[in-house]
Design a protein around this nucleic acid. Structure first.
Lengths: 138, 138
DNA sequence: GACGGATAGGTGCATATGCACCTATCCGAT
DNA sequence: ATCGGATAGGTGCATATGCACCTATCCGTC
């Protein structure tokens, strides 16, 4: 057991903040039956349209296999559809279903509420700047 | 598929930054055979001394059961020991073993290196401030 | 001393994350 | 036409995270 005040770990501090923030968003989205990760994924699909898994993963800066698995619960609930690519049969094209679009629309007000609550207390531009700087520095 | 530029999700941005930062720290700590979560846990134990799981979880702002499971790989590798509490037999007292102390010491230079690299590029005080503000706002 | 709420912890389940390794297909060079 | 590297994706494994629900023990009150 050491003495001396411990220098705080930048990474652990950020992980902790992310846990707290994720819990807040998840709680806000709970009535819509989505987690913030799932909501973000549906939003990507809405913005990008039908897209292969690997490109979707690149867009979200997620590991390819992670994206594959994150799609599973949405697939199971019928919010996204996965079809083989027309040109390249290896590709799996992910797209929003009607139910997915509805779920996204239903969840968006809850997300906006969470977003507004947080953004009112912490300047979102600052958060963005810090986040981008950390990504660049990593 | 909507048009209009998408307002970026504060939570997703932070999650993404945390993934990147965690990967950087994990890579830095790889020679020491620890992940940043595990390193942070060993550091807590070093600072706090033998401590029951629930209190350790509270210190780290982690869910109690999450802490229990995060201890598993460290337990398996003999870096921490878990003994029943002397006064309260329900309590499980977690403590650093000799091997745990050695692993912590061996990993610390790698952690410092990662910490220095990041802190040189992103002001750690700003990161701390943002992290704390987000925790308070959540 | 017995009862009942509070407290310490564990287990099952589900999601989130990434690595190592595998298969299948594509496509350019020969 | 074929061969070999590149590319799309999946699976197994391990960790990280938290919720719901369970047991065991403690302790104050009667």
């Amino acid at each position: 057991m050491s003495d001396r005040p411990a220098e705080s770990c930048t990474c652990s501090a950020l992980r902790r903040a992310t846990r707290a923030l994720t819990a807040a968003y998840d709680a806000a989205l709970k009535p819509a039956g989505l987690r913030v990760t799932q909501f973000a994924l549906l939003r990507y699909l809405d913005r990008l349209g039908p897209i292969p898994v690997t490109r979707l993963a690149a867009e979200a800066a997620l590991e390819r296999t992670t994206m594959g698995r994150n799609l599973d619960p949405l697939k199971r609930r019928g919010l996204v559809a996965i079809t083989p690519g027309a040109e390249d049969p290896r590709a799996r094209i992910v797209s929003l279903t009607g139910a997915g679009r509805e779920a996204l629309a239903a969840a968006t007000p809850y997300w906006r509420e969470a977003q507004a609550r947080i953004n009112a207390r912490v300047d979102p531009a600052t958060v963005s700047a810090v986040a981008e700087a950390l990504i660049a520095a990593s």
